[in-house]
């Protein structure tokens, strides 16, 4: 590193320490830029791939009310993906590069979306647990050090709060319904609980990128802190629903003022991250079909039309 760069880096960290946001054209270390591109694009991909397990249920929703709610939520997720892709693009990557990375399996997205939504109760559990977990992370990120990312997060958080409620509302209806419906809700909780806890990422001791991200204030709370916050909030919600969290070790720890919970199966987590989850292949297949087979000609036609129209306008003026 040259003396000039060292000086820039010191100034950069001083800004971060003083809570001054970093904006797109400001000087930043290459590693900060790279970390952000990785994290923001991964976050965007999660929104986009996240539409797949829910989209599956739009035509199968049990009532019109549920259908319009779910449709609105899935539309929001498309929007959230777009805000995030735009934020990543301010760092010098392009939409095409990000899409290629996703389609080629080089970029990651949240592993939770590699689990199938096999019953209607899963849509309730996804809204309640998956969106609930995502919101905790996203609220933290509204204060992230990179301005465009923070602003995208503010917008997303405003819209996201309805997502968790509509999920909880679905769970409430099922839990207040027939014994069969309640069993369906319990079954969904059983399957989604542990993967939801894994959403916060590896434990602090194992987390590869965490330390530097905390110094740069990209992240402001550790994975384990957020996970604990999620467990503490969710246990009481499950009590209201009258269903049981599938963890025999779950118990209130008076001394810590938090719930203790059982060990997470990290082997399962890494298996899914590596591409061996139940739906990894299906998800990528669906994304490739949307972007390449069914989407490319539409994008090409639109640009060809726009260029033709522009030519026509120019010749009219001439």
């Amino acid at each position: 590193m040259t003396a000039k760069e060292k000086n820039f880096e010191a100034l950069f960290q001083a800004k971060i320490d003083q809570e001054i946001k970093i904006e797109a054209k400001d000087w930043m270390p290459d590693a900060y830029r790279k970390t952000l591109v990785r994290q923001i694009s991964q976050h965007a991909h999660s929104e986009i791939v996240g539409m797949l397990p829910e989209g599956n249920w739009i035509t199968r929703a049990p009532s019109l009310r549920r259908k319009i709610g779910l449709l609105a939520k899935v539309q929001d997720e498309a929007g959230h993906g777009l805000y995030l892709y735009s934020a990543a693009e301010t760092l010098g990557t392009t939409r095409g590069q990000m899409m290629d990375a996703l389609n080629e399996g080089k970029a990651k997205y949240s592993s939770i979306f590699n689990y199938p939504t096999i019953t209607w109760a899963d849509i309730g559990a996804v809204g309640w647990l998956v969106d609930g977990a995502a919101i905790l992370n996203q609220v933290m990120l509204t204060r992230t050090s990179y301005g465009p990312y923070a602003r995208a997060m503010v917008r997303i958080c405003k819209e996201e709060s309805f997502h968790q409620r509509q999920g909880f509302d679905i769970m409430m209806s099922l839990c207040n319904g027939t014994a069969e419906q309640k069993a369906m809700a319990q079954d969904a909780l059983n399957r989604w609980w542990w993967p939801s806890l894994m959403m916060f990422g590896p434990s602090d001791a194992e987390s590869q990128h965490s330390e530097q991200s905390m110094i740069w204030k990209i992240k402001r709370k550790s994975n384990d802190t957020l996970r604990q916050q999620f467990v503490d909030a969710t246990v009481d919600q499950a009590k209201i629903l009258g269903i049981t969290i599938p963890d025999p070790d779950l118990s209130w720890n008076e001394e810590k003022g938090h719930y203790d919970f059982g060990a997470i199966d990290w082997d399962e987590f890494w298996q899914v991250v590596k591409g061996n989850g139940i739906c990894n292949r299906d998800r990528l297949k669906a994304r490739r079909a949307a972007y390449i087979t069914n989407g490319k000609w539409v994008r090409d036609a639109a640009i060809a039309y726009a260029e033709k129209k522009q030519q026509r306008d120019i010749s009219k003026v001439a």
């Binding site: 929001d76 929007g79 805000y83 735009s86 602003r151 917008r155 640009i303 039309y305 726009a306």
Partner: peptide, 24 residues
């Protein structure tokens, strides 16, 4: 300023902006 988006032309940009940034 609220953000950015991709569109082939100005008409599509306006419609996408409406759908993305004014859903509520």
């Amino acid at each position: 300023h609220v953000g950015s988006l991709h569109a082939a032309d100005s008409e599509m940009a306006l419609e996408n902006a409406r759908d993305v940034y004014t859903r509520r």
